[in-house]
Design a protein around this nucleic acid. Structure first.
Length: 330
DNA sequence: AAGAATCCCAACCGCAAGTTG
DNA sequence: GCAACTTGCGGTTGGGATTCT
């Protein structure tokens, strides 16, 4: 065991690779294979450590590397695998030919994680986040503090201010949800997918929702899990419920679609009683169903952000947004 | 037009597991 | 069994590119 001393050696070049260095490395590996990475730089005439050479080769120079944007299918696969495997980038990469673990990791950190957060999902647990609601008391306290700062006496308005703060928070939450759905639907990367054309295997791997979960996905199917090595599953420990909203992948209506549905209405794909997928169109007055939040096993696969004990249980829609509020919002 | 802010990704760092003698 | 060495992995960062103000 012990740390590799190679990168600690002095006089070895660091930083970006030059085309000449790339050329040397490629030519050497194509001729001789990489063999011992430690010996390779010397043999190839490179003033780099073996680790740096290995990284450059595996992440950039390897001929089978697929470059360019991640496809919708790849994105879905990453999300699905991440919900099962967590940050096991190399394990995830094995299921995405031509993609490196580093690339997937970067893609996750710069795109997918943000998307999930925007959607109100914890990127670690793939469950609805509760932190926003946990912040409600702070918002109320802020409203109260402002009143104090302004030296206004506590009067009958205090209660009203509190109510307004809660209303504002609710409004912001709802706007966030709708904006997230809209922004995802309008993102170029999502333009190639259509709920009606999602291949059946995506349903099989649990990316489409079962009836009871409405817009939320559930556990991956056995067939999907079988495609992952037993070792991976074992490493992942207990399998979490996967709740990527199906609207995550949905498409901005095309210009034609937009004519048909002039105002954006989040769609959820659900299965009919006979198992046939059908599309659920949410009306202006309906809301994404979040009442299926599985509090029962919440603690099993918690990440840091929502399971630190400070969070409050995720409230149901009727609890959170009363009818009057919804009408006001609409 | 220019400076600030943000995004993005190649590359580095350090840890740990595997291998070898 | 032990220590040295090698490899693989995940987290983090530096800085160029892009977007915003």
């Amino acid at each position: 065991m012990g740390r590799s001393p190679c990168c600690d050696e002095n006089g070895l070049k660091k930083g970006p690779w030059t085309p000449e260095e790339d050329q040397k490395l490629m030519e050497y590996i194509q001729k001789h294979g990489h063999g011992s990475w430690r010996a390779l730089p010397r043999l190839a005439g490179l003033n780099r450590c073996g680790k740096s050479c290995r990284l450059r080769w595996t992440n950039y120079l390897r001929p089978d590397i697929k470059r360019g944007k991640f496809t919708q299918e790849e994105e879905q696969t990453i999300l699905q695998l991440h919900s099962v495997l967590g940050n096991k980038w190399s394990a995830i990469a094995k299921h995405l030919p031509g993609r490196t673990d580093n690339e997937i990791k970067n893609f996750w950190n710069t795109h997918l994680k943000k998307k999930l957060i925007q959607m109100g999902f914890d990127p670690m647990t793939h469950r609805p986040r509760t932190d926003f609601f946990a912040a409600l008391p702070q918002l109320i306290a802020l409203a109260n503090l402002r009143q104090l700062v302004e030296q206004r006496p506590w009067d009958d308005h205090t209660a009203r201010i509190q109510v307004e703060a809660v209303q504002a928070a609710k409004l912001q939450c709802l706007q966030n949800l709708l904006q997230s759905a809209a922004s995802i639907a309008t993102s170029p990367s999502s333009s190639s997918i259509n709920t009606n054309t999602i291949p059946s295997d995506l349903e099989q791997i649990g990316l489409l929702s079962p009836p009871q979960m409405s817009s939320l996905s559930t556990l991956p199917s056995p067939s999907f899990l079988e495609s992952i090595s037993g070792q991976d599953i074992a490493a992942a420990g207990q399998l979490p419920d996967i709740q990527i909203p199906s609207s995550f992948f949905e498409q901005q209506p095309t210009s034609n679609d937009a004519n048909q549905h002039s105002d954006f209405t989040p769609k959820s794909s659900v299965e009919g009683e006979n198992g046939t997928p059908k599309t659920l169109l949410l009306s202006e007055n309906s809301l994404p169903p979040l009442t299926d939040f599985p509090i029962s096993n919440l603690g099993d696969a918690c990440g840091a952000s929502s399971c630190d004990g400070s969070s409050i249980p995720f409230p149901s829609w009727p609890e959170l947004f009363d009818e009057q509020f919804i009408c006001e919002f609409v």
